[in-house]
């Protein structure tokens, strides 16, 4: 039994969700190899070699892996799949894009976004916006899995894996990157932040969102998040969305401001350690998951809270 973990990176550094995915692989058992595919990404392979539990890095370095298009990534992974019992990737936008393609080419069912490993063939995953936990057993020879990072600790980095260079598969073409508009922020990354301050429609507009929540987030060293309503209304970019169809977060502290607590939002944050809700409506659903609820006008409470910290 050997697991292959697909590393997520931007050709210069490894994304931390990879470390949580390795922990899930370790719980499955057997040896763990890590695939680093990219362009001019030797530095990533070198730092990945330190991940505890990984014995071998497979490095595929070629210009056409630079964007890690699902077409080229799937071709590469499938070419090496025979050696593996399990192929895992983080359940990030990138992992979700690539892995079903791999699974279909291998004629294997994918097990999406697992939150627990029961045995090498049995896994738990949330369905219905996290209202149900499904335990499934896979009958396929190769298991293709995506891993919810917040459900597994990040592994340590004290290992010493060997690096093996792979021959690149042919460029599939078909897809070309035109541009990327990445949100620039000095704040911690939303998915892994220890503290998250999230705003909803209650903020009213983009100006209020930033004027009220930025100073609070500054004081707390927090990442900013948002409900779908806040994103749809253009208060903040899409990558701020927390929820069933946005990002899954589980910080030490989650502060929900002017968010009603629809199940789709709760799906993305209810595993946070401490949840605070600030809302003027005492009956809003967010209070059902909040450890500490404060009923009142956010326009008064948020500045007072920021000042008190």
């Amino acid at each position: 039994m050997t697991c292959l973990v697909i590393a997520e990176h931007d050709n210069s550094s490894l994304k931390s969700a990879t470390l949580n995915t390795v922990t899930a692989a370790a719980q499955i058992g057997g040896e763990i190899h890590l695939l680093v595919a990219g362009s001019a990404c030797a530095a990533v392979a070198k730092s990945a070699a330190k991940i505890t539990g990984v014995t071998k890095i497979l490095l595929a370095d070629a210009a056409h892996y630079a964007e890690q298009s699902p077409e080229n990534m799937a071709a590469l992974i499938v070419a090496h799949a025979v050696a593996y019992s399990h192929i895992l990737a983080p359940a990030t936008a990138a992992g979700k894009n690539i892995m079903p393609r791999v699974a279909a080419l291998l004629d294997t069912a994918q097990i999406s976004e697992i939150v627990a490993v029961h045995s090498p063939d049995t896994f738990v995953r949330p369905i219905y916006a996290g209202n149900v936990l499904l335990t499934v057993q896979s009958l396929d020879a190769v298991k293709v899995i995506t891993v919810r990072a917040t459900a597994f600790e990040a592994t340590a980095e004290s290992g010493q894996a060997t690096i093996e260079h792979l021959t690149a598969t042919a460029d599939v073409g078909q897809s070309k990157l035109v541009s990327r508009e990445l949100t620039q922020s000095a704040r911690p990354e939303l998915a892994i932040a220890k503290v998250v301050v999230s705003g909803g429609r209650g903020l009213g507009n983009s100006e209020n969102f930033h004027r009220l929540l930025e100073p609070l987030a500054d004081k707390l060293g927090a990442a900013l998040g948002a409900s779908r309503a806040a994103v749809d209304a253009g208060y903040v970019p899409n990558d701020f969305q927390v929820g069933q169809t946005g990002k899954i977060v589980a910080p030490q502290l989650y502060i929900a401001v002017g968010i009603s607590g629809a199940i789709q939002h709760l799906a993305g944050m209810k595993d946070s350690r401490v949840i605070v809700a600030i809302n003027k409506d005492p009956d809003s659903a967010i209070f059902q998951v909040a450890d500490y609820g404060l009923v009142g006008d956010l326009f008064e409470i948020v500045p007072a809270l920021t000042a008190a910290l």
Partner: peptide
């Protein structure tokens, strides 16, 4: 024919009730 067999479905553990401040 399904490849994945459902062994069980369960509701996730409920969060302990919070307090209003």
């Amino acid at each position: 024919t399904p490849r994945l067999t459902t062994l069980n479905m369960a509701e996730p553990p409920k969060r302990a009730a919070g307090v209003m401040v």
